[in-house]
Design a protein around this nucleic acid. Sequence first.
DNA 1: TCACGGGCTTGATAATTATCAAGGATCAGG
DNA 2: CCTGATCCTTGATAATTATCAAGCCCGTGA
Lengths: 232, 232
Amino acid sequence: MRTNDLPQMRSLPLFESMSESNFETLMKAAYLQTFPAQLDLITEGDPADFLYIVTEGCVELYARSNGRETTMAMVRPVGTFILAAVLKDAVYLMSARTVQKSRILLIPSQNVRAAFEHDEAFARAIVQELASCYRGVVKEHKSLKLRTAVERLANRLLRYHSEQGATGSLELPYDKRTIASLLGMTPENLSRAFNTLKPFGVDVDGSLVRLNDLDGLTTLAKPNALIDDRGT
Amino acid sequence: MRTNDLPQMRSLPLFESMSESNFETLMKAAYLQTFPAQLDLITEGDPADFLYIVTEGCVELYARSNGRETTMAMVRPVGTFILAAVLKDAVYLMSARTVQKSRILLIPSQNVRAAFEHDEAFARAIVQELASCYRGVVKEHKSLKLRTAVERLANRLLRYHSEQGATGSLELPYDKRTIASLLGMTPENLSRAFNTLKPFGVDVDGSLVRLNDLDGLTTLAKPNALIDDRGT
DNA sequence: TCACGGGCTTGATAATTATCAAGGATCAGG
DNA sequence: CCTGATCCTTGATAATTATCAAGCCCGTGA
């Protein structure tokens, strides 16, 4: 890695509390690379050779079975992926590809595990990150099992809305087909779900969504902190 | 905790590598209790005061939203639950109740976090456990998004079958309505899914299931190691 | 400018899953 | 032996979601 990239990496939550010497050792083994859009980074079933940390851009985690494919999560800066596989020295359960041109830090698995052993602060940060990932999937799973497609969409819109400053409108952060897959439905069904939400003040124009009846939409969505709140 | 329970606890994977003194400190703060069946242990939304470790019996993790309820997982010996909430000092995302009379070790959250800081072997064991839990939920989530109800049931039967020694028949480990909820369907739908599987050699008699056409069932189920294999 | 293609939408239809209501089996307790 | 309760199953129906087939919109590049 280039020396002048080091300070930026050092300030990432995962590294900021670890000792200088352990950080240097870890970074000597790491690669910081920029990948173009739509590039496959890893494939499910492959052994976990690297931990990935997205510093710029966006990565889609997806999975396949039978002939079907589904989006499992989107990773934005500064998020990691495939941490559990690295820690367990197991195969990846998900595939990953860039959505946009992305800058990604790759750390060889064995170095991550070594740093975990030798640096208590790093171990603590790793565990916090892993616990957050775990709770994220649990929330997704609850959403899928406890809500209809329209409810999932309504709550997702409310989430984007508040993340983007609650201005009354929001920008969809991904293609609609990606959002559909994230929410566990087909693109056709997403279209129809948007139509179902029209009477609740949801106006869609491309990737711009206006929410003209927040109260009504909220009543329908019944948001639940234990599903919809991030980072808790 | 009673002194003569200590050796048994000591042999649990979570504790077996930690230092004797750290183990003793942790156990001084812990409670080993036996709970009757159908007792509510924790409720989602409550602060995570304890880490729970099931040493005997069985615990159901479930979640509610709107008026709906779903079973998220079943925990058998020697499994932990609510580990992520404890490590993050956050609220529980799931509720838990005993299925049968169960023997459960409760360790106050703050002691778990302290032991994590002070004992590297414990930290490693905690991370392995948490990573396993994470991968478990990811697999469940993949199953729900990529498979139909009949496929989920078929694969679950194959899993129970191999877990129980692949003798050609298996015992359903929980009530059918619990299995239905675990698999993300209604009890009525589970009944019908069993009927759909009858032409594939699946004969149900109460909680006993005979698999008379393993090849046929496997062809239909299309099991996938990255969804169905435990512990990888 | 025009054709092309990708992404999205819509309509028609089918498959899947849920709901509601009723009935059968089983078992514990009186 | 009955009674009631629980659990499961079945049938009828409805709701939800997926699939298939056009078609529209819009930006890109020739």
